[in-house]
């Protein structure tokens, strides 16, 4: 009888099933996120068959990647992504600083909330919307020509690497604002008053105080933008010129061509890039600091 009660308790009591319910997210994420992501490495060395693949060990996919134009394209798209990160930092981070430093405390979150609105509109729509804006007859060109600033339409801003960078920045800029602000929130505003008191100039405060203190947030925002610029196929598909690719698009093309080991090899390379970046960033800046406001 007591054994039955013990079983009932272990299933229903506060130490039983109810408690196990809290493990659902971990199990789900382990099963459908961590496992497939980790297995990319395994599948990347499988043998390719006509329509599928079979277990084995071959580096053919990697060889295929590194000896074709794909590796070169991958490097180019890394450069474009890095440019997108820098541009987003230059445009977006000052917003986080301004809001934290100059806006009344009670209004700070509301200003940041403004950036949720564009962020929550489909990336598809936002990227797509750049076409009628940046195109030869687009809003920007007709506007500038109307104003007499240019006489010929600027064509370098669409279907080109510049177009891709613009698309990445438009897509992911809000994340730099969010992550930057999150990091700035851990900085007591007294610190800025100390700087005013000592007479630290604007540039010096930025370099000596703000950037070091917000480094974890800047880094997290930067990695997010870098990885997504590298991996979201939509942007080069819609805004890039002929032959414009990034890692995501190469993977997509490999899937369409039913070359699954190749797709997985490129995914694995990308994910390793991500892991290395995060690891280095964590060693340098202790990324757990970003979580301070919520722990």
């Amino acid at each position: 009888m007591s054994a039955l009660l013990a079983i009932r308790d272990s299933l229903m009591g506060e130490r039983g099933l109810q408690r196990w319910a809290f493990y659902i997210p971990v199990v789900f994420m382990a099963l459908f996120f961590a496992a497939p992501v980790a297995l990319t490495l395994v599948w990347s060395v499988f043998e390719r068959t006509m329509f599928w693949m079979e277990p084995g060990f071959t580096l053919a996919a990697y060889e295929n990647f590194f000896t074709s134009a794909r590796a070169e394209n991958y490097v180019y798209s890394m450069i474009h992504s890095a440019v997108a990160v820098v541009v987003s930092f230059v445009i977006g981070f000052p917003i986080a600083v301004f809001v934290r430093r100059r806006v009344v405390k009670a209004a700070q979150h509301r200003v940041i909330l403004l950036f949720i609105l564009p962020f929550m509109i489909s990336e598809l729509v936002r990227v797509f919307a750049m076409r009628p804006v940046l195109g030869r007859n687009g809003l920007l060109n007709t506007g500038l020509m109307e104003l007499g600033i240019i006489s010929e339409p600027i064509t370098i801003i669409l279907f080109s690497p510049i177009g891709v960078v613009i698309g990445d920045v438009i897509s992911f800029l809000p994340f730099m604002v969010f992550a930057g602000f999150l990091a700035m929130e851990a900085v007591q505003t007294y610190i800025f008053e100390v700087c005013d008191d000592i007479g630290v100039g604007r540039a010096r405060t930025f370099r000596d105080i703000i950037v070091p203190l917000a480094a974890p947030g800047i880094f997290a925002g930067g990695v997010f933008i870098f990885v997504n610029s590298l991996g979201v196929a939509l942007v080069p598909t819609i805004l890039g010129g002929p032959g414009a690719v990034n890692a995501g698009l190469i993977v997509n093309q490999a899937i369409v061509a039913l070359d699954f080991p190749l797709a997985m090899a490129i995914s694995a390379i990308m994910l390793l890039t991500l892991v290395v970046l995060l690891y280095v960033g964590h060693r340098l800046f202790d990324l757990t600091k970003i979580l301070q406001p919520i722990s």
């Binding site: 997210p25 971990v26 994420m29 382990a30 459908f32 996120f33 961590a34 496992a35 497939p36 992501v37 297995l39 990319t40 599948w43 990695v223 997010f224 990885v227 997504n228 590298l230 991996g231 979201v232 196929a233 939509l234 890692a247 995501g248 698009l249 993977v251 997509n252 899937i255 699954f260 797709a263 997985m264 995914s267 990308m270 994910l271 991500l274 995060l278 757990t288 979580l291 722990s295």
Partner: peptide
């Protein structure tokens, strides 16, 4: 906490095409 939060937030850092392909093959 750190391990858990890493697991929960990592999907933010894995781009759509990569995650989709990995799950497809999975």
């Amino acid at each position: 906490k750190v391990a858990f939060v890493t697991l929960m937030l990592s999907p933010l850092f894995v781009p759509a095409d990569i995650m989709g392909s990995a799950l497809l093959i999975y």
